[in-house]
Design a protein around this nucleic acid. Structure first.
Lengths: 186, 186
DNA sequence: TTCGATTTGTCGTTTATCCAACACATTGAT
DNA sequence: ATCAATGTGTTGGATAAACGACAAATCGAA
């Protein structure tokens, strides 16, 4: 994992690349986007791309993570504790994210996207659990975060399967007790 | 005179600086704008500013040149020849430029602005004269360009003195024969 | 005036970006 | 199947940008 650099040049270049990629994603499918397209749009050298990203899949991963994180942070980070309201708004963020993706047509990468979403959820849950239960054993919190992330992600998949006519709130609220049964530190 | 560099880093940085300066000019007066302000807004290092510009006056000069050139190129470069229509549209560009400047409040730099406008006009006229009279003696064309630039610039000053209720077209059209008397290569 | 704070230019070093070139896929048309 | 064109990923050397530090200049208030 690359540690976050603070050099302005790095931040600027990564932003240019990310924005260009998201821009292009709105026009083409992922499979038709080349590294050359991105670097041309971003007006940076192609070699510079490889300085920051393994390849185009690495970029996809990081771009998706970022977009999802923006979605998540906007909403629920205000009250800082994992109550019912927090779970509902996290679930809403995830389902909104899935909807916006299906517009952008990243077909053929559902499993990649799934993994990214779940990993990000795990990170978020772990952070919130640490805040809420300061001083607890790390491993136990980590395990809880894993379970919660799989649970919420599974719920979003199930919601998707049911079709868009079901409101996410109405779907998740009755399911929450089941998801939380067996969770220690919430 | 610095020769135009083609390195993308150079172009990008200069654009960032220029845009930030123009941005700031809309909010503050020129005298209240510091190099630090500009580089902070542009998110570039202060030392990098001095790599591209002598000082803030150098930037003012180059920024004004560019803005004026954009004004000029947009309009009249289509028909490529110095007929009456071309003179009218050049004059319009200059007077529009002066109006937009008086909004942006660059007080105390009227003479600098004047010089820049005239120099740019000279460059434009020379280019067009070269196109029109391919193969003529350089010095004669240069002289004509100088005379034309002073003439048009003088006319714009005179127009400004008269107040904005006079339409630029109506002002310049009757004056053109006087401006052009004694010009050889038009 | 004097003092402190801010701005201005400059410099040497480190780091990110550019560039040209390369071998190796992948693609698409004939 | 072949060939040309295009994309991929990597390298080494050149150059621009970042950074911290510095002395000098400018400004404003005590």
């Amino acid at each position: 994992m690359t540690q976050p650099k603070s050099d302005p040049r790095v931040l600027r270049t990564r932003r240019l690349i990310m924005d260009s990629f998201i821009e292009l994603s709105a026009k083409k499918e992922f499979k038709d986007i080349t590294v050359k397209d991105i670097t041309t749009e971003a007006m940076i050298n192609r070699a510079t791309f490889y300085y920051h990203f393994e390849d185009i899949y690495d970029l996809l991963e990081k771009a998706l993570s970022e977009v999802l994180l923006v979605n998540l942070n906007g909403d629920f980070y205000k009250n800082d504790k994992l109550d019912e309201e927090a779970f509902v708004s996290i679930f809403l963020a995830v389902t909104n994210f899935q909807k916006s993706l299906s517009n952008r047509c990243h077909r053929g990468y559902e499993d990649t996207i799934a993994r990214i979403i779940r990993e990000q959820l795990e990170i978020i849950f772990y952070k919130m659990l640490v805040k809420q239960n300061a001083g607890e054993e790390d491993e136990a919190l980590k395990l809880n975060a894993v379970i919660l992330s799989w649970g919420i992600y599974g719920a979003s998949v199930e919601w998707k399967r049911k079709g868009i006519d079901v409101q996410p709130e109405e779907f998740i609220k009755p399911a929450l007790p089941y998801l939380l049964s067996g969770i220690e530190y919430v």
